[in-house]
C-alpha cells in the first residue's frame, strides 16, 4: 500500500524574487506605484499627524490650504506628507512621529523634545489641510508628498516660506530661479497674518488657476 511516486513539482509562475536578483548582482527593478485609493483613512493618518511643532512652541508656524483637482474642486480624500530639516538644520529626523501608548497601543503623538521632521495630514471634507511646524533650518522650504484616490503615482512638491520662516532667500533658490514667474508662484506660500501661511495645491490646472509645480528627483 505504498503511495504512488510524487511527480516533480513544476516551477511556480510569478514574480521573480528581487532578493534573488540582488544576490546575483543585478539591480532589481522597482516595484510599481499604485493609487492610495479612498479607504486609507483608518490606516495611514495618525493622531496629531500635522502637529510637528511641540505644543505651545513660540516659533510655531502654521501652513494650511486646499488641494484641488482639474475642475477646481477641493479633493476630500488626499493625503499629504511633509518632511523637513529641524530648526538647527539637522536632516537626521527622529523616531516618534507615531509614538504609541504602551498600554492601549493608541497613537499619542510626538513627545515634543525631538523634532521628527515628518508630518502626515489627510484633507478634510473641504479639501483642506493644516500643518503646524517649526521653521526648517538651512533651507527655505518644506518637502511635500501628495497621495490621492485617482492619483496612480504620488507627486512631490515644496512649500517655499518667505521671510524669516524660511532660512535663506527663496529668490536665490536654484529651483525657484529656474521657473518662469507664473510657475514659480505655485511654490510660494502666501503670508496670512502672523506666522500663518497659505499654500494651495492644484493637481491639475483648471483654466483659471495655475497647476502646482511637481518635482522629479530622478
Amino acid at each position: 500500500m505504498t503511495p504512488p511516486p510524487v511527480p516533480p513539482v513544476p516551477p511556480v509562475p510569478g514574480t521573480p524574487r528581487a532578493e534573488a536578483l540582488a544576490a546575483a548582482g543585478e539591480r532589481p527593478p522597482p516595484t510599481p506605484s499604485q493609487t492610495v485609493g479612498p479607504f486609507y483613512g483608518y490606516a495611514l493618518p495618525f493622531a496629531k499627524g500635522g502637529d510637528m511643532a511641540p505644543a505651545g512652541h513660540p516659533d510655531t508656524i502654521t501652513v494650511h490650504g486646499r488641494v484641488h483637482d482639474g475642475a477646481g474642486q477641493p479633493i476630500p480624500d488626499a493625503l499629504l506628507e511633509f518632511w523637513q530639516p529641524a530648526p538647527d538644520g539637522s536632516r537626521a529626523g527622529a523616531p516618534g512621529s507615531l509614538r504609541r501608548d504602551p498600554v492601549t497601543g493608541e497613537i499619542v503623538g510626538r513627545h515634543g523634545v525631538d523634532f521628527t521632521g515628518f508630518g502626515r495630514v489627510a484633507t478634510d471634507a473641504d479639501g483642506h489641510y493644516t500643518l503646524r511646524t517649526l521653521p526648517p533650518g538651512g533651507v527655505p522650504y518644506i518637502s511635500v508628498c501628495v497621495f490621492a484616490r485617482g492619483l496612480l503615482h504620488h507627486l512631490f512638491t515644496r512649500v517655499y516660506l518667505p521671510g524669516p520662516a524660511g532660512a535663506g532667500d527663496p529668490a536665490a533658490d536654484p529651483l525657484l530661479a529656474s521657473l518662469p514667474p507664473r510657475r514659480r508662484a505655485t511654490l510660494l506660500a502666501a503670508p496670512e497674518g502672523e506666522k500663518t501661511y497659505r499654500f494651495d495645491i492644484r493637481l491639475q490646472g483648471d483654466g483659471a488657476h495655475e497647476e502646482t509645480v511637481f518635482l522629479d528627483f530622478g
Binding site: 483637482d69 482639474g70 474642486q73
Partner: peptide, 8 residues
Amino acid sequence: SILRHPRQ
C-alpha cells in the same frame, strides 16, 4: 485619474 494628474 482624469482630473487628478498634472498636465505639465
